[in-house]
Simulated scan of single mutants.
Amino acid sequence: MPESPQDFLANWTASRGNLRNFLETTAFAPLGEGPQRAAGEAAAAVAVEELFGINLDAYSAGVESVAGSFESAGANKLNHPDPAIPQDVGAAAFFDVDNTLIQGSSLVSFAFGLAKRRYFTFSEIVPIAWKQLKFRVSGNENAEDVAAGRVQALEFIKGRSVEEMVALCEEIVDQSMAHKAYPGTKQLAQMHIDAGQQVWLVTATPVQLAQILARRFGFTGALGTVAEVKDGKFTGRLVGDILHGPGKKHAVAALATMERLDLSRCTAYSDSANDVPMLSMVGTAVAINPDARLHRIAQERGWLIRDYRSVRKAVKTYGLPALAMAAFSFGGWRLTRK
Rank of each mutant, 00 (worst) to 15 (best):
Q175K: 15
L31D: 11
L19Y: 14
P277K: 11
P35M: 08
A254Y: 06
L78Q: 03
Q152G: 02
A324H: 11
K77G: 00
E33G: 00
Q299E: 15
K313R: 15
I193W: 06
M1P: 02
R216M: 02
L238Q: 14
A285R: 05
E228N: 09
F120Y: 14
V226L: 03
E170P: 04
G159I: 09
F120M: 11
S65I: 00
S105N: 05
A143Q: 08
L188D: 09
S109M: 10
F234A: 00
G90T: 05
H80D: 02
K316R: 15
L78G: 03
K313W: 05
A129C: 07
I54D: 02
F219M: 07
A167H: 11
L133W: 14
G196E: 08
F219C: 00
L255V: 05
H295K: 15
P35G: 03
A210M: 01
A204L: 05
S106W: 08
N55P: 02
A167P: 00
P183E: 09
P206W: 11
D174Q: 14
C169I: 04
L255K: 08
A167Y: 08
S4W: 04
V166M: 10
S15L: 14
E141S: 08
V286L: 07
R312L: 08
G196Q: 07
A214P: 04
R306M: 07
G17V: 01
H295T: 05
G32K: 10
V226N: 07
M281V: 02
V89T: 12
V162F: 08
E259N: 01
A44D: 08
A148S: 10
A292Y: 09
A147D: 07
T317Q: 14
G53W: 12
F122S: 13
D57H: 12
A254H: 02
M1D: 11
A44Q: 13
E163S: 12
N18I: 06
H295D: 12
P290S: 01
N142C: 02
A10Q: 12
P183F: 09
L23F: 14
M191Q: 15
R260A: 14
I305Y: 07
L107N: 07
N289E: 03
L101W: 12
F28H: 13
V146F: 01
T220F: 09
A222S: 01
Y318V: 03
Q6Y: 10
C169A: 11
S15Q: 15
A285H: 06
L279N: 07
A148P: 00
G232V: 05
F217K: 01
R309Q: 11
Y119A: 10
Q175Y: 11
I125A: 12
F95M: 05
M278I: 01
Q132E: 14
K230R: 15
N79I: 10
A167L: 13
G74S: 05
S69M: 04
L294H: 09
A42W: 09
S264L: 03
M258G: 02
G221E: 04
L78K: 01
Y59I: 03
K116S: 09
L209Y: 10
F330T: 11
Q152T: 12
A27T: 12
